[in-house]
Design a protein around this nucleic acid. Sequence first.
DNA 1: ACAAAGAGTTGAACTAGTTCAATTTTTTTC
DNA 2: GAAAAAAATTGAACTAGTTCAACTCTTTGT
Lengths: 188, 188
Amino acid sequence: MNELLKQNINKHVQFSASELEEFCKYFQLKTFKKKEHLLKQGDVCKFEGFVLNGCFRIFTLDQKGSDNTLYFAARDWWLMDNDSFMHQNPSHLNMQALEDSEVLMINRTDKLMLYEKLPIVEKLFRVMSQKALVAWQRRLIRNHCETAKERYQNFLSTYPSIASKITDKQMASYLGITHEFLSKIKKQ
Amino acid sequence: MNELLKQNINKHVQFSASELEEFCKYFQLKTFKKKEHLLKQGDVCKFEGFVLNGCFRIFTLDQKGSDNTLYFAARDWWLMDNDSFMHQNPSHLNMQALEDSEVLMINRTDKLMLYEKLPIVEKLFRVMSQKALVAWQRRLIRNHCETAKERYQNFLSTYPSIASKITDKQMASYLGITHEFLSKIKKQ
DNA sequence: ACAAAGAGTTGAACTAGTTCAATTTTTTTC
DNA sequence: GAAAAAAATTGAACTAGTTCAACTCTTTGT
C-alpha cells in the first residue's frame, strides 16, 4: 500500500528495511472528497501527510481577502505546515483537495516520537527541508526576474500533470497575477 | 570567542555543554575585508559559516546580468548554500562582505562527520531549515500581496540595523525593484 | 433537466513599476 | 586632496499587469 511512500523516502535518505517499516507503520490512509479541507486557516496543524493520489492546493487568504497559492501537492508530494506543526499556533494555510484524494497521514505525537526513536527520521526531514529551501529560493528569484508569461510557460512544462488539474484562477493565484491577465497571456 | 554561536544554537535546539563544545570546536574564525567574496558563483561550496560581525550580501547574477539579492546575513546569521553544499555542484550564489567581517566557518568534511557523530546536529539543521522554509514562504506571499512601498517600509522596521549598512541599490535588488523606483518611493 | 454558481473572456481605463538618459552627490582610490 | 568611480536623484516615455464591468461558457447541486 505505501510502496510509494517508501520509494519517496529512499529518494532522499537511504533507510534500512526495518527503519522503513517502523517509520511507515504510523501512517494511516485517509481519503478526501473534492473540495474537502485537510487543514483550514486558523486550525492548529496536528498531522503531516503524503499524497498517494489526487491533488491539493495549499493557499492563504490575506487581510484584503485575496487568495495566494503557495503550492500544489499531487501524488508523491508531502503536505505540511511547518510553522503551525512546530509551534502549535493557528495555521495561516488552507490545504484543500482539488479532486478526490488519498493521503497517508501521521499525527504529531507519533512523528515527534519517531524523531526521538529513529534518528534517521531527523535526517530525512533535514534533507527534505534543505531541498525545499533551495526550491523556494529559486522560486522567489524567478518571480523577480521572469515575466508572468515566462513563469506560466515554465509551470506548464515543469508540472504538466498539475497544470491539467487546476483552474486558471488557481494557476493565476500561484503565479501571483490576476486571472484576467492570465487569460490575456493565453490568448497570445 | 564563540559564545554567540553557542547562544544561537541553543535558540533552536537545546544542546548539552559537551555537545556544544564538540560541535563548536570545528569552527574557525576567518576575516573578510569589505567587498571580499566568501563564495563566488560557479565555485563549489565546501563550507558553511556563522557571522560574528559585519554583514554579507547573498545574491545571484542571472543570464541577463541582473542582480538579485536573496538575503543579507549580519551578526548572528548563518551563511550557506544548501544546494551547492549538498550536491557539490557549482554554486549559483555570491556571498560578499558589505563591510569588514568576521565569520566562524566549518568545512564540509567536518560538518558531514558531525552529522554522523552527533545526532543532535541533524536536529539542529532540521529545525533551522524548517524555520527558514516558513520565512521564505512568507516572503514569497508578501511579494505577491504587498506593494514595493509596503515591502520597503516593512524591511526598514524589521531589519533596521541591516538597512543602515546597505546601499539603496542593494535594497532595491532585495525588494525586486529598480533602484530608480526605490528612489521615487523614498521621495514620497 | 434546470437553476444557480463559478470559471473564463474581453475591453477600456488605469497604475505600479521600468527604462533610458542626464545630472548631482557620495565614496573610493592613489 | 584631486580624480575617478559608484551611488542616488529626477524626469519623460513606456509597459506589464490591474481593476472593473459586462458577457459567455461550464460545472455543480438538487
